[in-house]
């Protein structure tokens, strides 16, 4: 029995990797997530107060910084006693989403709730919108403030899996304030590794990195802030950057119904009169 199960596991892993998330294993995933989604959604709504309470306890060390947030949370909790607070909070969040201004306002958006997450070694998460809502694999995902979170890696009819940019295999082509293009690599934690090659100008701490525009993401979305200043060494910069989106507290995200098309490329070319960055092709954030 043990040998059979071990062999079966290895076969599944091999099939899954060879199918790149599609095929029979992809269908299995979609089916399971579709079936499990309503249960997860219900469980998430039940445990939200518990999560908020534990979250508050866990962040005692940063109490001063969180003071304002806690005040707001207390206000929310008081409102919840009147059984109205939940709706008020939702309205507030939805208002932020509605007020969200993107660099390209013509891109249609779809707000979605985070209903489940992977375990310690899987930073992906599941949202409550899917192909039925018009989402497709590759759609960029931002937080309620418009900061880049990741992209849809798998879409079922009612749910979708988001592969965040912080995944160890994630990478985003970014542009710094000086106009230089680099790649921000995910490392599995809330720190990205920024590589600029070739680099002519130094990058300084708190420089905002925006998506440079590639086949994966539209240009101008905030991605991260440079954590440490760095100067070019052998025409190369390698430093850390902190994502703008707070991946630990994501509850609501906005999916941009955008996919790269040849027309976008044609529109961009006369303006820049340059070929797309070579590293844009290597940009990946698939599982």
């Amino acid at each position: 029995m043990l040998v059979v199960l071990v062999v079966l596991s290895f076969l599944l892993m091999t099939f899954d990797i060879r199918a790149s998330g599609g095929g029979v294993t992809g269908t299995l995933r979609e089916g399971t997530q579709s079936v499990f989604a309503p249960v997860q959604e219900f469980a998430t709504s039940l445990i939200s107060p518990v999560v908020d309470f534990i979250d508050g306890l866990a962040n005692l060390a940063g109490l001063r910084d969180e003071n304002e947030t806690l005040r707001r949370r207390i206000a929310e909790l008081e409102a919840k006693v009147d059984e109205v607070g939940t709706l008020e909070a939702e309205v507030e969040t939805l208002r932020r989403v509605a007020d969200l201004t993107l660099p390209d306002e013509s891109i249609p958006t779809k707000p979605a709730r985070v209903i489940a997450r992977g375990d310690n070694f899987d930073s992906s998460f599941t949202i409550d919108k899917g192909t039925r809502d018009g989402l497709v694999v590759g759609n960029p995902v931002v937080d309620e403030n418009g900061a880049l979170v990741g992209e849809i890696s798998m879409a079922a009819p009612r749910t979708a899996t988001v592969a965040p940019i912080i995944r160890p295999t994630g990478a985003v082509t970014v542009e710094s304030q000086t106009g230089e293009t680099g790649i921000a690599f995910g490392q599995g934690s809330a720190i990205l590794l920024l590589e600029v090659n070739p680099a002519t100008e130094p990058v300084f701490a708190d420089y905002l990195l925006l998506t440079a525009g590639s086949t994966k993401f539209p240009p101008g979305l905030p991605v991260a802030k440079v954590a440490e200043s760095a100067s070019p060494e052998a025409a190369k910069i390698r430093t850390e950057a902190v994502p703008v989106a707070d991946f630990n507290r994501l509850k609501l995200v906005v999916v941009l119904q955008w996919t790269f098309s040849a027309e976008d490329q044609q529109e961009e070319q006369p303006v820049t009169d340059e070929t797309p960055p070579a590293d844009a092709e290597s940009e990946t954030s698939t599982p």
């Binding site: 596991s9 599944l12 892993m13 899954d16 997530q33």
Partner: peptide, 15 residues
């Protein structure tokens, strides 16, 4: 099935 890591990874480990 509910995550995005290779299908069978956690199945193997937990077995």
């Amino acid at each position: 099935l509910l995550g995005s890591s290779p299908l069978g990874l956690r199945a193997l480990v937990l077995t």
